[in-house]
Nucleic acid binder design. Structure first.
Lengths: 247, 247
DNA sequence: CGCCCACTTGATTAATATCAAATACTGTGG
DNA sequence: CCACAGTATTTGATATTAATCAAGTGGGCG
C-alpha cells in the first residue's frame, strides 16, 4: 500500500472502490537523484507531484543567495493539489535523497475527486495540514529560540514519519545535513551545530548517519513547546458539515 | 462594489451573473470591535469569514504567552475557504480595528462554487495567494534581517492595499501598533522601534497615527529584497488546464 | 485627575553570526 | 586500494544583532 493512502487514512477510511481509485491515481513513478529540483521557482506547474519514496523539501531563495527551507516532505506527501491555478511556482521543491516521485495528471485528479467526494475531502485535509504546518513553522521562527526550534522540527518529523509507518520505535531515517538543518531553522551552520550538541548533551536525541533517534520524547516535546494538534492527525472526519471539499 | 470582488478581479473578470452571485454570497455584516477574536484557536469553524471593512490578523500563541502574528488581513480578504474540513482551528484571527465581517454559510459557498466554476477558481486563487504569502513570511523570518523584514511587510501591505483600491498615492491606513509590528516581525518592541526609526531616518517611510506613507518605494523594495511576484497579482487566468478548482 | 498604553532612549546582557581552521567523511579517478 | 577533492562536522575567537532591563514621555479615556 502506498504512503499516500497510509497518510490519508489518518483522516478517514476508504472502501474498496475508493482505495482502487487512489491506487490508480498514482502514475508511473519517476526516479530523481539526490539534491535535484523536482520543480523550480518560475516553472509552470503541470501536474500534482507526489513523493512515494525518499525525502524532499520546499524552499525559497533571496536574490543574494540566502535560502530558506520552508518544510520537509516525507513519503506520502503531496506538493499542493491546486498548484495549477497559479501560472508560476513561487518556490521550489528539491530532493534530499534519491527519491521516487509520481506526477499525477491534473485531469485524472479532477476526475477522481469528482467521483469520490471522500477522496476530495481527504486531499483537502492534506493541504490544510500542510498550511497549518507552515503556520507552526512561522510561529517557531518568530518566537522559538534556536534550541526550541530544532527540537520542534525533530518532534514534527517524528510524528509525521510515525503516521506513515516509517518510524522504528523512536528512530527513523532523516537524511538531512547540518547545513540543511541550518537553512530550515534560519540558523548559521555553526550555531546549529552547537544547538544540536546541546540536545545531545541533554540526552534528548541521537543524530548522525542520516538517522534520528529520539531518546526522550517527553523531554524534547517539553523543550520545544510541542503540541501535535497542528498536524491534525487522527481527525476522523465525521462532521456532516464538512462537505466543502471543492473550494 | 465590495472589496472581495475587487480583490478577485486581480485574478479574473466576472460577467453580470457571476457578480450578482458574488454579491449575494456576502451575508449580513457583523460589526466587531477592536482587538477582539473573530475566531479562536480550538473553535469549530462554522462558516467562511470575510473581512469587509477594517483590519485583522492571524496569530498563534505558545503556552507561555509568546505570540506570533502570521499575517494581516486587509478588506476583501477571506479567512480560508476550506477551513471546514478541519475540526478545530489551529490558530486565531483577531481584529486590529473596529471591523465589518461577514460570515458566509458553507452551504451557500458550496452552491455558488458548484454553479460558477470561475468563482470557484478565483476563490482557490485567493487561498493560494495566502499560502504563498505565508511562505514569503517564512523566508523573511528565517533569512531577512530586522530592517529587511520590516521593509518587506511595509511593501507587501502597500501592494495589497493598492490592489483593493485603498491606497491614496503611496499612503494608506495601517492601524497597527509597534508592539503588534514586533509580534509580526518576531522582534522585541524596543528593537522594532529602533529598526523603524532607521527606516524613517533614511527617508524611506513615514509612519505614525495609523497611517503609513512610503516615501521611497524603490528604495524600500531594494532594502527588503521585495519581489511582488509572490502576491500573484494581475495573473489573468487564461490557462485552460487551470480547471482543478475543486481539490 | 489618574491610569494604561504606546512610544522612545540608554545601558547592559544574551543570542547568534562571522571568521578561521582543524578533523572527519564520501565518493571519484587512477 | 589509494590519493584526492569536496563536503560535513566540529572547535575557538571575535563581532554583530537583538533581547532585556530600566526609565521617562506623552496621549487617550474613564
Amino acid at each position: 500500500m502506498n504512503a499516500l493512502i497510509r497518510k490519508l487514512q489518518n483522516f478517514t477510511s476508504f472502501d474498496r472502490e475508493e482505495l482502487q481509485a487512489l491506487e490508480e491515481l498514482v502514475g508511473a513513478p519517476i526516479r530523481i537523484g539526490r539534491d535535484r529540483d523536482v520543480i523550480s521557482q518560475g516553472d509552470n506547474p503541470t501536474g500534482v507531484n507526489l513523493l512515494l519514496e525518499g525525502f524532499a523539501f520546499r524552499y525559497k531563495t533571496l536574490p543574494d543567495g540566502r535560502r530558506q527551507i520552508l518544510g520537509f516532505f516525507v513519503p506520502g506527501d503531496i506538493c499542493d493539489v491546486r498548484v495549477f491555478v497559479l501560472k508560476h511556482m513561487d518556490h521550489s521543491i528539491a530532493t534530499l535523497t534519491d527519491s521516487l516521485v509520481s506526477i499525477m495528471p491534473g485531469d485524472r485528479v479532477l476526475a477522481v475527486t469528482d467521483t469520490y467526494p471522500k477522496i476530495a475531502r481527504a486531499l483537502a485535509w492534506a493541504t490544510l495540514v500542510e498550511e497549518s504546518t507552515s503556520r507552526e513553522w512561522l510561529l517557531s521562527m518568530g518566537q522559538r529560540s534556536a534550541g526550541e526550534r530544532l527540537a520542534h522540527i525533530f518532534c514534527e518529523i517524528f510524528y509525521r514519519m510515525d503516521a506513515v509507518g516509517l518510524a522504528t520505535g523512536r528512530s527513523f531515517a532523516f537524511p538531512v545535513t547540518q547545513p540543511e538543518l541550518g537553512e530550515a531553522t534560519g540558523l548559521s551552520v555553526v550555531h546549529l551545530n552547537r544547538t544540536l550538541q546541546e540536545l545531545r548533551r541533554r540526552d534528548l536525541v541521537r543524530f548522525g548517519g542520516r538517522v534520528l533517534t529520539i531518546l526522550d520524547l517527553a523531554g524534547l516535546e517539553a523543550l520545544a513547546l510541542f503540541d501535535p494538534a497542528y498536524l491534525h492527525l487522527h481527525e476522523a472526519a465525521s462532521r456532516p458539515s464538512a462537505t466543502l471539499e471543492d473550494a
